[in-house]
Design a protein around this nucleic acid. Structure first.
Lengths: 254, 254
DNA sequence: CCTGGCGTTGCGCTATGTGCAACAGCCATT
DNA sequence: AATGGCTGTTGCACATAGCGCAACGCCAGG
C-alpha cells in the first residue's frame, strides 16, 4: 500500500538471513543504492537495523526490545501466568501457553519445571504446527473453510513416526480435537516427549489460547500424563473465566 | 530521513506499550486517520502488526520471528555456543553471552545449569547495565569519551546495597575492569547472585562480546566462584581466537 | 599513479503519499 | 425505529516527499 514503507520493511526479513552491505540490499530490493541508503538510515534511526564494524547492516537490538515488550503486554499472558505457575507447582512439569496468529502458532509463555524464573523458549520460532497439542486446539477452532485452506497449505514434516503425515490426517485429528475439547501430542514432535493440552476460551466461546503440560516419557508415561488432563482442563477453564471478564481484572484506568 | 517510513516505524514502539485503535495511532503520530490507516496496513502486510478481534492493533508475530532469526545468525553467538556449553558442563553453572549495541547490553545466549536445552531469557530486555559483570566489560572497552558520556546518561537504580550508586563509582569500576581484563558482579543485581565475566575480543583487540558464569551464593560462595575465573578467561580467549579467524570457521559460501 | 568498487551527496522530476470530505457500519440513546 | 455519535474506510486533487541519476570522495589493490 505504501511503497516506501513496503520497501523499508522488506529489508528486515532480508537482513534476518544475515548481514548485508548497501549494494546487496539495493539489488535485492530492486532499487537504486541511494534509495536503499535512505531507507536503511531511517531503519537505523529507529534502532531496527545496526551497522556493524565492517559497515554491513544487521538487524538491531531494538527489535528484541519490541518483541519483548509486546510479549509482556499480552493480556491473556498476563492473566494466565499465575495459573501456569500454580499448575507447574502442583505437577512439576513444563507448562506452555500458546496463541495462533496469522498462520502461525507461537508460545507466549512457559514455566519450566523447578525453575520459578519465567523464560521464553523458542519465542517467535514457528511451533511445529502440525503436531503440537496446542496447535491442534488453536487450529481446530478456526472456521471450517479457513481450517481446510490452512491444512492444505501446510507442510507435514515427519519429525517422528508418529508425526501427522498429511492434510487428511490432520483435518481428521482437528475434528476429533474440536469435539473432545482437548488435545495431545504423543511423541509426534520428539520421540520421547508427550503433551496434553486444553483450550482457553474468550467470552464468545472462541479459543483465544491453548495451554499444555509436557514431560519426557522417561519421567512419566503417556498414560500417567493423561491423568493430569482434568487438572489441565480445570486450569484452562479458570483462565477462560478470568479472561472473559468475570473477575475484577485490575484497573484499566488510563 | 524518510518521512513515511519514519512515521510507520514510530508506530511500533507506540504499539509496544499496548494495543491501540486507529484514532489513537493517528493522534499520537500527529497525522490524519487515513494516513495512519495506510501505514498500519503496510505494517500489517509485513506481519509486524496484528489486528485483534476488537479491531485494535498490536505488534505482530513476525516481529518475534525476526528477532529470533537475527539472534540465530549472530556469528559470535554461533562460534561461542559450543564453548559455552563445554564451560557449563565442566562447572555446572549458568553461562551467559552478551553484546553491547547502541547504548544497550543484551544477552544473546545462555546455557542453564543441568539443562542442555538452550533458552533465551530476557532477550531484548535491557540488561542491568550498571551492575552486570558483562556490561562492565563491554562498556569498559568503549572510547573514553563515549564511556563518560554514556555513564552520565545512565540511571543508577539501587537493586541492592551493593549496586553501583552513581556515574563516578561506575566510571571508576570501569577503569578497574579495563585494566584487569575481567569483571564481577557480587550481589549488585540480586542480593544472592554472583557473577564472574571475561571479554571476547576481535582480531583488532576490541571487545566484541562478554561472557559470564553466574551462581547463587547458596550453591557456591563468591570466593569459590572466583576460583573459576581462570577457566572463564580461558574459554573467552578460545572464543576470541576462533572469532578472530584463526580456525576454519565453516564455509561462508553463498 | 591509476583503476575499480564501495558509500555518500545534490538535484530535478514526477510518482507517491498526503489530508480532506464524504461514506459506511455499529452501538447506544431517545 | 429512527437518531446521533463513534468508529474505520474510500476516492480524489494537490504538492510534498521520495525517487533515480550522475558526480564525488574514499580506500585498497594493481
Amino acid at each position: 500500500m505504501s511503497q516506501t514503507v513496503d520497501r523499508a520493511l522488506s529489508i528486515l526479513p532480508l537482513l534476518a538471513e544475515g548481514p548485508a552491505d548497501l549494494g546487496q540490499v539495493a539489488d535485492r530490493l530492486g532499487v537504486h543504492k541511494s534509495t536503499a541508503l535512505r531507507l536503511l538510515r531511517t531503519l537505523h534511526e529507529h534502532g531496527l537495523v545496526y551497522r556493524q564494524s565492517d559497515q554491513r547492516y544487521r538487524l538491531g537490538a531494538r527489535l528484541f526490545a519490541l518483541a519483548q515488550e509486546a510479549m509482556e503486554n499480552l493480556d491473556i499472558r498476563e492473566i494466565a501466568h499465575p495459573h501456569l505457575v500454580r499448575l507447574n507447582e502442583s505437577c512439576g512439569h513444563t507448562v506452555h501457553l500458546a496463541v495462533y496468529e496469522e498462520n502461525e502458532v507461537l508460545y507466549i509463555d512457559k514455566v519450566e519445571s523447578r525453575y520459578p524464573v519465567r523464560m521464553y523458549s523458542r519465542i517467535g520460532k514457528p511451533v511445529a504446527i502440525t503436531v503440537a497439542a496446542v496447535a491442534k486446539l488453536l487450529l481446530a477452532d478456526l472456521p471450517a473453510a479457513e481450517r481446510r485452506a490452512l491444512a492444505e497449505r501446510l507442510d507435514y514434516p515427519l519429525y517422528t513416526a508418529r508425526s501427522t503425515p498429511n492434510s487428511e490426517a490432520f483435518l481428521k485429528e482437528l475434528t476429533t480435537v474440536r469435539e473432545q475439547g482437548w488435545a495431545t501430542d504423543l511423541g509426534g514432535h520428539e520421540e520421547s516427549i508427550n503433551c496434553v493440552a486444553a483450550p482457553v476460551r474468550g467470552a464468545d466461546g472462541r479459543v483465544v489460547a491453548a495451554m499444555s503440560v509436557s514431560a519426557p516419557n522417561v519421567v512419566v508415561t503417556a498414560e500417567e500424563l493423561l491423568t493430569l488432563l482434568p487438572l489441565v482442563r480445570r486450569t484452562a477453564d479458570a483462565i477462560s473465566g478470568e479472561y472473559s471478564g468475570r473477575t475484577p481484572v485490575k484497573g484499566t484506568s488510563a
